[in-house]
Design a protein around this nucleic acid. Structure first.
Lengths: 150, 150
DNA sequence: AATACAAATGCAACATTATTGTATTTAGAA
DNA sequence: TTCTAAATACAATAATGTTGCATTTGTATT
């Protein structure tokens, strides 16, 4: 479920990363923590439509650099942003989890409850990070019996 | 390595899919089959700079629908296109292989020699397709001793 | 070989997503 | 309260992708 945090906690988060507490940043944090799915850039932009687009991009980039959020592209190549779980450090993400992209509601879920399989690659390849994508129906949409694509 | 095919074979491919044999299509096929990596949309566009951009997009979409190529987004969300291996049918891709994105040369390799691990997801999720991404150094770049990012 | 027609291309216009530079505003320290 | 670096807002531009339509072309048919 969505991690519930209050405004004081968001202010602490910013402070810990040496970021100024500004209204746009707090709103972005509040929105992202209120959901249990990643948020697409278009969604963010329409919800935060009174914040300048460029400011939004810069906030997202800053948060990503600081390890507060991570970016994940969905099956359509659309950028989605999700809050990182605990062990992401600055410029050093640990987002090697499964990203589940629902084909009906389009939501992207970060599934941390699953450990990534370590694979052996053909000779010569030196992998540093893995990400696994799955697509299909999420619990909500499969319950609706929806094979339909919205 | 790159699959070597001649122009007659490309013409056959088009014919088998009920596509007209046109110069732009043959050139796209020729380019994509000459490589052992996926080709990014920007690369395609600069190499095929005398073909109309829209035509190129439409050719790629058509080829994808017909199961001739598949689209894969790299770690930067850039669209890349790669030739499908044998068992892709129209509107029904079997591209559940590992995509390896080299952080140095940026190339995307389709690694078919690896079978996808089947994973058990949390209750409610109904996965229909999996794709695995890895990033790191490809054989060429790791040989160069290049941890550098171009 | 000429014709006819659907399919494919080329062109124009536009939409969306993202970046860069700079002026203005503001959070937080002094 | 003042000062300054940081953050935001605004303007301009780049990159990527889509839609509609006129023109051209591959190919089936005569």
């Amino acid at each position: 479920m969505a991690q519930v945090k209050n405004n004081y906690q968001f202010e602490d988060m910013l402070q810990k990363h040496n970021l100024k507490k500004t209204a746009p940043r707090l709103r972005v944090l509040s929105m992202m923590y209120s959901k249990n799915t990643a948020t697409s850039q278009p969604d963010l932009e329409s919800v935060m439509n009174d914040i300048d687009r460029v400011t939004l991009y810069r906030i997202l980039n800053t948060f990503e650099e600081k390890g507060i959020i991570h970016k994940v592209f969905d099956l359509n190549g659309t950028a989605n942003y999700a809050v990182c779980h605990s062990d992401c450090k600055e410029n050093h993400h640990h987002d090697e989890h499964l990203h589940f992209n629902c084909t009906a509601c389009k939501n992207v879920y970060c599934i941390n409850e699953l450990n990534m399989p370590r694979l052996t690659l053909p000779a010569g390849f030196e992998p540093q990070a893995f990400t696994l994508y799955a697509s299909g129906l999420c619990p909500k949409c499969s319950k609706k019996g929806a094979a339909r694509v919205n």
